[in-house]
């Protein structure tokens, strides 16, 4: 085996490990959403290729308002689906589309685009 082959091999395996770590094992930043004076937990989620922020922490039992702003026209993110609650919203580009939820049971609830490629998570504590 030549030197370049060895280097490519080490590089390839190292890069694969990096990909796996970055996408699967690295800790995702979660955003804790505070309750407003009116008792609503309100958050703005930017939609562009993904959800920013995509992991949000809420308190159980209080109303939640997620304001989605889709800053792209690409079709992928047109729908956002909360399948645990049979809820779907069509995100009109560049508009604020609110999704109202009230979750009483603590746990983790996912939300995703129509194809399930882009995902986010609500952590209810």
């Amino acid at each position: 085996m030549t030197l370049d082959q060895i280097l490519v091999m080490i590089g390839g395996v190292g890069l694969s490990a990096l990909v796996a770590w970055y996408f699967w094992f690295s800790e995702k930043k979660a955003v804790k959403v505070e309750t407003s004076d009116s008792g609503i937990q309100e958050a703005v989620i930017k939609v562009k290729g993904g959800y920013t922020p995509d992991v949000l922490i809420f308190e159980a039992g209080k109303p939640i308002k997620l304001n989605f702003i889709r800053e792209e026209t690409a079709g992928c993110t047109e729908d956002v689906i909360f399948s645990d609650f049979n809820k779907r919203a069509t995100l009109t580009p560049f508009k604020t589309i609110p999704v109202d939820l009230k979750i009483d049971k603590p746990g983790e609830y996912g939300f995703q685009c129509g194809m399930g490629m882009i995902k986010g998570k609500l952590i209810i504590s």
Binding site: Y22, K28, G49, G50, Y51, C76, I118
Partner: peptide, 18 residues
């Protein structure tokens, strides 16, 4: 759209078709 989509996803530590 491939680049913007990929970058946005990358920032969120996720990856998609883009």
């Amino acid at each position: 759209q491939f680049y913007t989509g990929a970058w946005a996803a990358f920032k969120n530590r996720s990856a998609n078709m883009h």
